[in-house]
């Protein structure tokens, strides 16, 4: 089983999330996470999809995804050439007794406190999957009351941009489409 991160540029049109999610479900592909958000271009959204490929080849998944008319471009982002991050919000039990220990853990992981009351602290942290899971392990002994986690987002390292390279403004004359009788 192997995990891959796909960065998928899609037209910012209604229903596109349903199309992608529906494709994955009906073809029995496993999604680990999916995050959607705007890009620098208001007409385009980026989906970052982490998939677990077992019985299907990555190539098959990409080709099926590419058949969706609203999908403009798909790139696999490898760990080495990309920056990847998830967002974690976690509520832990914290009292004056263990507060010192908690602070030490948060400092190690660069996590910050975004809310607190007399019994609990809400912590925010970002990072790749390994860091987030290590942080959660370290916080476990204080008692995790609730957690919310985003899907992974990722971006290529370096100055290039996927959109620059892929957005052709090629247009199709409508006269060429549709209704010509066949010639065998």
């Amino acid at each position: 089983m192997s995990t891959h991160t796909l960065s998928v540029l899609v037209e910012n049109s209604p229903g596109v999330l349903a199309r992608v999610a529906g494709l994955f479900s009906r073809r029995a592909y496993n999604i680990d996470s999916l995050a959607v958000g705007p890009t620098e271009n208001p007409d385009i959204s980026r989906m970052t999809i982490v998939i677990n490929v077992e019985s299907h080849s990555l190539e098959q998944v990409i080709r099926q995804l590419d058949k969706l008319v609203n999908v403009i471009h798909i790139a696999e982002l490898k760990l080495d050439d990309s920056v990847q991050a998830e967002l974690l919000l976690v509520k832990i039990s914290a009292t004056s007794k263990n507060r010192f220990d908690v602070d030490a853990v948060l400092e190690t992981y660069g996590a910050t406190i975004v809310d607190e009351d007399s019994e609990s602290l809400t912590v925010e942290a970002t990072g790749d999957a390994a860091k987030i899971s290590d942080l959660l392990n370290a916080l476990e002994r204080f008692g995790i009351r609730e957690l919310a986690q985003s899907g992974l987002v990722a971006i290529e390292r370096g100055s290039g941009s996927l959109a620059d390279r892929t957005l052709s403004t090629q247009s199709i004359p409508t006269a060429d489409s549709g209704q010509a009788d066949y010639q065998n």
């Binding site: 037209e11 969706l68 008319v69 471009h73 090629q170 247009s171 199709i172 004359p173 409508t174 006269a175």
Partner: peptide, 10 residues
């Protein structure tokens, strides 16, 4: 339209 633009369909 005389021209179509379908950036995801080629």
């Amino acid at each position: 339209p005389s021209q179509l633009s379908l950036p995801g369909y080629h």
